[in-house]
Design a protein around this nucleic acid. Structure first.
Length: 863
RNA sequence: GCCCGUGUGGUGAAAUUGGUAAACACAGCGGACUUAAAAUCCGCCGCCCGUAAUUGGGCUUGCCGGUUCAAGUCCGGCCGCGGGCACCA
């Protein structure tokens, strides 16, 4: 018998055994019997061609949950597939001349082979790629159904244009003014685009996200902020002078501070406001001003240093509450067209931007809120009542002044009163405004799902008839010029109108690839059986990166609501993911050569206190610990780790040290430590498989200790897995193995307990190191496959010790320990504590004021 | 600026109803086995003071204060780090 465990031989053997037993295939609702269902899902990968350590951690975590749930008797669905559309395939086509489809499917094959080596409990029978025509054809049918139900529309709009990827981006895909994928500064272009009415669901998306108790607080907050609900007043200011024909009724504004209306000193329009644009057509100076505004970049730094700029239109409006008072109308660069109505009323005393603007253009500043807190109330302007004395706008709490019928009201009450008054006057209504915009889904790219509509000169926009779906992508495309290859294709877009039969043009935009990932989990649940879909949904535990907090995770929530409302899915809540866990990244030290080249970990080594480059022997600078990335070269290839240590070691290590939601640093020594532990576990089982006991034990105390330790360990591991504290579960396993290792000498009784403990341990190892668990299970002749075995039952009575050690404090400082029976009463414990010899020097000549006894916990003597 | 998170040994971290701070691991140190090395096993490992030695004393969870018999944990106020949003009216 070998004296070491060989993962290279064992791991493939067990994977084959699982496959032959078809162990991870989810049961249909009718086969499942009484077993509750558990849908465990990790965000499916983009098929880049290579698995990285971040994938290993993500899928290892999901696998812990899936295998654990299976052992607990759940009917588990744990599928895998490919998020296969997207720009990298087109970039590969441009660089290497390979067709995006060919490239993608080759990558899928390569990655699937890597996946299989990890020993994940996946149900591959449900695998698909989003670029399979079956899948995107169904997506096209959903698009048309959404269109039938008014959830899709087309409009000309100013959109974010990525000049590198040559496509439009949604607001969610612009990060700090740059494209989320290309990193290029985004430009604004006016284009006709398709939109989904995600704003119809703004209120529900916001309200329900707060109720997702098994989602991280952080993600819920991010979504809430993104949706950005604000209550306020939408009203119009009627013209005093020079009413333009197109806006004869006045200027519509939105405000959240109707309580400060008496402090109004001007109106400001966005440079992109329709009225501004109209006036600029006949006013060169205004047109020049608009051009100046457009020059300011959209990045954080640009906005920070951009000065307030304004243009006086010469128009003026009437104050709604004060007869004869008029307010000038400016165009101001800080007013955004994309929020509210694109126009505001300005109250400089209580809004910093308005304040800056008023100072610059010498406009009145009238304070109307008297601060309620002491510090602010000491300011000079409060007593003088003059805005000239203000250093900055006051935005804190207070009561209203200088405001006729609103005087002395608190802000909240004043807001309601002002809104009521405006409503009475017929000038506006209290409304709710959202920051969320409709989701622009048009992309001017080839490798995506074609939007299934036809443009006919006679009939207008005509949906592709369902029987003609899928609208397939053409195979013969070229990528030799910039722009949309579908647009360039000589024949593809030419078709006949399904309505009138005349020549017509196909839509050449494809759908944003976030559509593909917005319903894939429903497709995994069932290809087309609504009953089975309803059975599996929602996903019980979803695991993935936090970077999708407001992208994928928001779109998917919208999509389920839309599918529900058009009768495509039976999911009353519309919530796709009941539980969400966002895992941390895998990081690594970075290494830099003297000439500035980044070096991969495999090409450097430590010699004493310094690091050198292997090839040249030159000194290397050890840099920051960062997310593994190609650019910094601080990556570790999972294949190499699996070849050296086995998959179990890689899984164990990425789960062991840090809590799952935090980053974990990959280190060579840490991986070696995990590898040593694998051998240590195996040696315990190996020793047990060769042990023969013939004599009765002289003392059964050790057996009892081991027995208790084992049941306690299972209890702790169970709880830790339930709570997503895999690092704690692993610590408990370490302790347990040490106890078991120490119990190698003994007689019949101990041997029996060791076997019982080992049987429990093997089953607890399954979620983390499934191959090793099988090997160990075989060594102790366990029944069938360990991966199919039930989670060990525990005897609750063994969790409580007969006697406990209690710390004794004197005035809150720990001074001694006593051993007392579990059943000892408070009085007994107190008597034992006070009699404790080592305590006498602290209490002997003092008056005991009080003794606090918390049975099972602590004794505190107050003197 | 606003919102969220976070701060504990040399390092990653435990302590999840206010009750023995530092479990478990990595690194380090010492030892056993060995001709030697590897592997393996055992022990030590927060800081300061004291002792011939010890189950001797003091301090310690970013900082300041509070509540409590008792605070890493609760409350108030600061500071640092990370993330998100951001001319959002």
């Amino acid at each position: 018998m070998a004296s070491r465990y060989d993962p290279q031989a064992a791991e493939p053997k067990w994977r084959k055994a699982w496959q032959q037993a078809d162990l991870f295939k989810a049961k249909s609702p009718s086969e499942a019997g009484d077993a509750p269902k558990a849908y465990v899902l990790e965000m499916f990968p983009y098929p880049s061609g290579r698995l990285h350590m971040g994938h290993v951690r993500n899928y290892a975590m999901g696998d812990v949950v899936a295998r654990y749930k299976k052992a607990k008797g759940f009917n588990v669905l744990h599928p895998m597939g490919w998020d296969a559309f997207g720009m990298p395939a087109e970039n590969a086509a441009m660089e290497k001349g390979v067709h995006p489809g060919t490239w993608t499917y080759q990558n899928i094959d390569a990655m699937k082979a890597q996946f299989e080596k990890l020993g994940l409990s996946l149900d591959w029978s449900r695998e698909f790629a989003t670029c399979d025509p079956d899948y995107y054809g169904e997506q096209q049918r959903l698009f048309l159904k959404f269109m039938d139900n008014g959830l899709v529309y087309q409009k000309k709009a100013k959109v974010n244009w990525d000049p590198v990827d040559h496509t439009v981006l949604a607001n969610e895909q612009v990060i700090d003014g740059k494209g989320w994928r290309s990193g290029a500064p985004v430009e604004q272009r006016e284009l006709v685009q398709w939109f989904f009415r995600i704003t119809d669901y703004a209120e529900d998306l916001l309200e329900q996200v707060q109720k997702l108790e098994r989602w991280p607080e952080k993600v819920r907050t991010m979504q809430a902020n993104w949706i950005g609900r604000s209550e306020g007043l939408q009203m119009r200011f009627e013209w005093a002078e020079g009413a333009p024909e197109s806006h004869a009724q006045g200027v519509e504004i939105f405000t959240t501070r109707p309580d400060t209306l008496f402090g109004a000193s001007f109106i400001a329009l966005s440079p992109d406001h329709p009225l501004t644009i109209e006036m600029a057509a006949s006013n060169a100076a205004l047109e020049a001003f608009r051009a100046d505004c457009a020059k300011v970049g959209t990045s954080e730094a640009d906005i920070e240093k951009a000065p307030k700029m304004g243009f006086d239109t010469g128009l003026s409006v009437k104050h709604p509450f004060v007869d004869d008072q008029t307010l000038p109308v400016y165009v101001a660069n800080f007013v955004l067209m994309g929020y509210g109505t694109g126009a505001i009323f300005a109250c400089p005393a209580h809004d910093q931007r308005d304040f800056d603007f008023a100072r610059k253009y010498d406009l009145p500043i009238l304070p109307v809120v008297k601060p309620s807190d002491k510090d602010a109330a000491s300011a000079e302007w409060v007593s003088s009542g003059r805005g000239e004395d203000m250093d900055a706008a006051y935005t804190g709490p207070g009561s209203i002044m200088n405001s006729a019928f609103l005087n002395d009201q608190e802000i909240t009450a004043a807001k309601s009163m002002a809104i009521a008054k405006v409503e009475d006057l017929g000038l506006g209504t209290g409304t709710v405004n959202y920051r969320l915009r409709d989701w622009g889904v048009s992309r001017q790219r080839y490798w995506g799902c074609p939007i299934p509509v036809i443009h006919c000169e006679t009939c207008g926009i005509v949906p592709v008839p369902v029987e003609d779906l899928p609208v397939k992508l053409p195979e013969d495309v070229s990528f030799d010029k910039p722009g949309n290859p579908l647009e360039h294709h000589p024949t593809w877009k030419h078709c006949t109108c399904p309505n009138c039969g005349k020549p017509a043009l196909r839509e050449t935009d494809t759908l944003d690839t976030f559509n593909d990932s917005s319903w894939y989990f429903a497709r995994f649940a069932s290809v087309d059986d609504p009953v089975e879909r309803a059975y599996w949904l929602p996903v019980d535990q979803y695991v993935g990166g936090v970077e999708h907090a407001v992208l994928h995770l928001l779109y998917a929530r919208f999509f389920m609501r839309a599918m529900r409302d058009v009768g495509e899915v039976d999911l009353p809540s519309g919530e796709p993911f009941a539980g969400l866990f966002t895992q941390g990244m895998v990081t690594h030290e970075t290494y830099k050569a003297e000439d500035g080249r980044w070096l991969p970990p495999a090409e450097v080594e430590q010699r004493g206190d310094i690091w050198i480059e292997r090839a040249t022997g030159q000194a290397v600078t050890v840099g920051a610990i960062e997310k593994m990335s190609k650019s910094k070269k601080n990556t570790v290839d999972p294949d190499n780790i699996i070849a050296t240590f086995g998959a179990d070691t890689a899984r164990w290590f990425v789960l062991s040290d840090s809590p799952p939601e935090r980053d974990v640093e990959w280190t060579q020594s840490g991986a070696e430590g995990a590898g040593r532990f694998v051998q240590r576990v195996w040696s315990v089982f190996h020793a047990l498989s060769e042990a023969t006991a013939t004599a009765p034990d002289s003392d059964t105390g050790e057996a009892t200790t081991l027995r208790r330790a084992s049941h306690k360990a299972v209890h702790a591991i169970d709880k830790a897995i339930e709570e997503f504290r895999f690092n704690s579960a692993i610590a408990s396993i370490h302790e347990w193995v040490s106890v078991l290792k120490k119990a190698e000498q003994g007689g019949d009784t101990l041997l029996a307990v060791r076997l019982e403990a080992a049987s429990m341990l093997a089953r607890c190892l399954v979620p983390f190191m499934p191959h090793l668990a099988e090997e160990c299970w075989a060594l102790i002749e366990g029944d069938g496959l360990c991966s199919a075995a039930a989670w060990p039952d525990i005897d609750e009575t063994l969790l409580v010790e007969d006697s406990v050690t209690l710390p004794i404090q004197v005035n809150g400082k720990r001074r001694a320990e006593i051993a007392v029976s579990k059943t000892a009463g408070k009085d007994d414990i107190e008597a034992t504590a006070l009699a404790e010899p080592s305590l006498q020097s602290f209490i002997a000549d003092k008056t005991i004021k009080k003794v606090i006894v918390v049975p099972g916990r602590i004794v505190n003597i107050v003197v």
